[in-house]
Each structure stands twice: as C-alpha cells, then as structure tokens.
Design a protein around this nucleic acid. Structure first.
Lengths: 138, 138
DNA sequence: CAGGATCCTTACCGATACTG
DNA sequence: CAGTATCGGTAAGGATCCTG
C-alpha cells in the first residue's frame, strides 16, 4: 500500500483505494490466515493510510453488501480496533479510523502477507495436487 | 511450548500435551487471528514438538469431537501443512506431523501469540467495556 | 484406536429492497 | 450517504451413537 505525504501535516494522507486491492488471487486471499471474520483483515488494511468513509470501503472490498460491511465494522469497533466518527455536514459523513490497537495489527497482517507471498508456490502446488487427486477419485 | 533434547538424536522430542493448553482465556484464544478453520492453528501448535496421534491431539483441544478433528486434519493434510502416517501394529496407530510448510507457520503463530500477549490488557478492557455497554442498553 | 454416520443448531455471508 | 430490514443458502461446529 502506498503512502503519500503532504508538508505541514506530517501524517499519511489517504489515496483512492484500489478496486483490485483484494482480488481473489492476491496473497491476502490465498493465505490461510484470518483476523476476526472474513473481512476484518482487509478492512484494517484499507484503513492503513488514514480514515475512510463507509462507501469508500465498499469499493476495494469487492462491493461488499452494506449489511455485511456494517456488521464487520461494528465488531471491529466493539473490539477497539477502529473508531467511528460522524461528521455533520451537507451530506451525512461517517469516518472509520484505526485506533492504536488496530494499527498494531498491521505488522501482523504484513507478516502474514509476507508469509503467503513466500510460500505462494507451495500453496498453489498443494491446491492443484488436491484438485488432481479429487478428480482422479471421482 | 517446551522443547526437550536428547543427545544423538538432535530433534525435538514430544512431551505430553497440556490439557489446559488452549483454555478459553489463553492468548491463542483471545487473539483475533485464525489460521484456516477454528482448530487449525491450535493443531499446528500441538504438533510443534513432534508427531502426535489422533487421540493425543484431542486432549489439549478441549476434547474436540472426532468428526471435527478429522475434518480439520484432512484439510491441513490436503493443504500440505501436515502428513498423515499409518503405523501398523498391535493397536492401530496414526501419526500426524508437520511438513516444512506447516512448520513455517509456527513463526507466524508465535508472532500472533506475542501480539495477543502484548495487548492482552487492551483486548480484555475492550471486551469488558462492550459487555458493560450491552448490559446498559438492555 | 481412529475414525465414520447421522442429526441438529448456529454463524456467516450474500442478494435485494427500502429508509432517515 | 450510511445504513436497516428481510429472506435465503451454505458451511461450520457440535452431540451422540456406531464400526473395522
């Protein structure tokens, strides 16, 4: 994930999230590691560069349905990994942001992703061998 | 997990598994990280010190029912994290052992456990606050 | 001993439609 | 915009009993 910096702010500024960020073939998807529910790990990674809005999050998460996203976000909020802030304005605006606890999970997620990238070939080989075995049995 | 060494063998030797190894309050349970299904991570950690038998594994895994253990083991075998060996003998004996791929997951699991231990207090606080909030609402 | 068979309950996840 | 409401399918997990 790329981080951009602006002077006199000295914090990461959010870049548009990549719709292909979590396509089904990326290591984040292939690794057998999960944080919380299916989406929690991906959500946390989406928040790495700064706060995001509800509808902004849906894009990289393969247009996750609002119900599922809401549930996952509420769980993350309950467990103190993110905070939810409502900014009043012309159009309603809700921001989700990592807490320090949530941020501390990023390292772990990076480690998991690194593991998956390292062993990607083995993982795919095993999967293909399993498929071959299954088709031979049937 | 403790490792004992015997000379002229130079490999870890299995110690009896602790029945309380994965009690519901240990960091392995509190951490929001999972490898594969609910039991996979715990099984892998049980195999850290060497091969184990089916019935041996059930003890630390809170007397998991055989059906569930079998399914989890088969999945781990399919994905090349463990190997299953049948040793013929007076009474049937089946051993489960980590592959190098499975073994490589141990670091990640250790990192996850370390994370959970570091943030244990925050995790419990968040959980308790959530419970308090819930009871106030009802 | 190492499981398989059966039944059941719940959780997860998704699609669609609707609302303050 | 940020959700709720409703419905439905699938899979995970577990209890109990049975078997080569």
């Amino acid at each position: 994930m790329v981080t951009a910096w602006i002077p006199h702010y000295c914090g990461p500024v959010a870049k548009p999230l990549d719709p292909e960020m979590f396509d089904p073939l990326c290591p984040s998807e292939l690794m057998p590691i999960r944080v919380g529910d299916k989406w929690a790990g991906m959500i946390i990674q989406c928040l790495e560069d700064g706060p995001r809005r509800f509808s902004e999050l849906r894009v990289p998460l393969r247009n996750i349905t609002p119900k599922v996203l809401t549930k996952s976000l509420r769980t993350l909020e309950r467990d103190a990994f993110i905070v939810r802030t409502i900014h009043a304005g012309p159009s309603r605006q809700v921001q989700y942001e990592l807490t320090s606890l949530g941020r501390s999970l990023l390292e772990l997620l990076d480690a998991a992703r690194a593991w998956a990238e390292t062993h990607l070939e083995e993982l795919i080989d095993a999967r293909e061998a399993a498929i071959a075995r299954a088709s031979r049995t049937s």
